[in-house]
């Protein structure tokens, strides 16, 4: 199938792609993927290790760079009571790591009409009443692989400080780790999302120049300039391009 051929056709190591001198002898560690032991390179990420072991990932990988939150993973290591919640794509393996990816995380996502909301605490009371059950235990913050101050932003919701919620939850990947660990059963990342949308739509200051420019376009202010540019032959256009001033 597709990859059968691709497998044989190993990536061409063309000189411009990379110049690998020699494969190094790799240091290996043993990890337990859902309980099964595999030897994998010590410097591998968890995602790399799962693939190295021979799994074809379907669920549990999206961006592979720490942006999408598809790769939520829990693990424990020997002689340590703690449970660790991480992203498989950006976390390195360790000797004895016992890990499991979470293929999907059940959350509740209420449906709302953003145009009919008001940016205040009452909106959260209505849409996410469970937020008010927060016991400030800080488990969510501890669970966050992005090291965000999750509890602080939930507490900011209670105060109606939407700007703070936006700011503290800005880098949230919606991996859902906080939501499955929360004893008050809050879905923190969805709460953060609502706050960001409310902020962007209602609280962020309006840009006057943007408004003006949109009006100008509507009034066809640039038609003439466009027409001239679009009429130009390649050479003429080239000349104009290379002569343009740079800011």
């Amino acid at each position: 199938m597709p990859t059968k051929k691709e497998a044989k056709k190993k990536p061409v190591k063309t000189p411009e792609a990379k110049s690998v001198k020699k494969a190094q002898d790799k240091e290996m560690v043993t990890v337990f993927i859902m309980g099964k032991a595999y030897k994998v390179p010590a410097e591998a990420t968890i995602m790399g290790a799962i693939e190295y072991a021979g799994y074809q990932i379907k669920r549990g990988a999206g961006c592979r760079e720490g942006f999408c939150g598809a790769c939520a993973t829990v693990y424990r290591v020997p002689n340590d009571y703690k449970i660790y919640t991480v992203l498989a794509c950006t976390t390195l393996v360790q000797e004895g790591m016992w890990l499991s990816q979470l293929p999907a995380i059940p959350t509740q996502k209420p449906v709302y009409d953003i145009n009919k909301l008001e940016p205040n605490v009452a909106t959260f009371q209505k849409i996410y009443p469970e937020v008010f059950r927060c016991v400030a235990c800080n488990t969510c913050t501890k669970a966050c692989p992005q090291d965000l101050e999750v509890m602080d932003y939930i507490q900011a919701v209670l105060r109606g400080d939407i700007e703070k919620v936006m700011d503290l939850s800005f880098d949230c990947l919606c991996c859902g780790m906080c939501a499955i660990r929360c004893p008050a059963e809050i879905v923190q990342h969805n709460v953060g999302m609502l706050a960001k949308r409310l902020y962007g739509k209602y609280l962020s200051r309006e840009s006057i120049q943007l408004k003006k420019r949109i009006q100008e376009v509507k009034e066809h202010k640039y038609d003439k300039e466009y027409k001239e540019l679009m009429k130009m032959g390649k050479e003429e256009l080239k000349k104009k391009y290379y002569e343009r001033d740079l800011e």
Partner: peptide, 30 residues
């Protein structure tokens, strides 16, 4: 290219109306 560039300002606004949080300066300009 004309479509792309001429629709652009409107697109910034459309996204903001959906709730996208653009980086802004103090006075509200982008």
């Amino acid at each position: 290219v004309r479509t792309l560039t001429e629709d652009a300002p409107e697109t910034v606004k459309w996204l903001e109306d959906l709730g996208v949080v653009w980086d802004k300066l103090e006075d509200g300009s982008l």
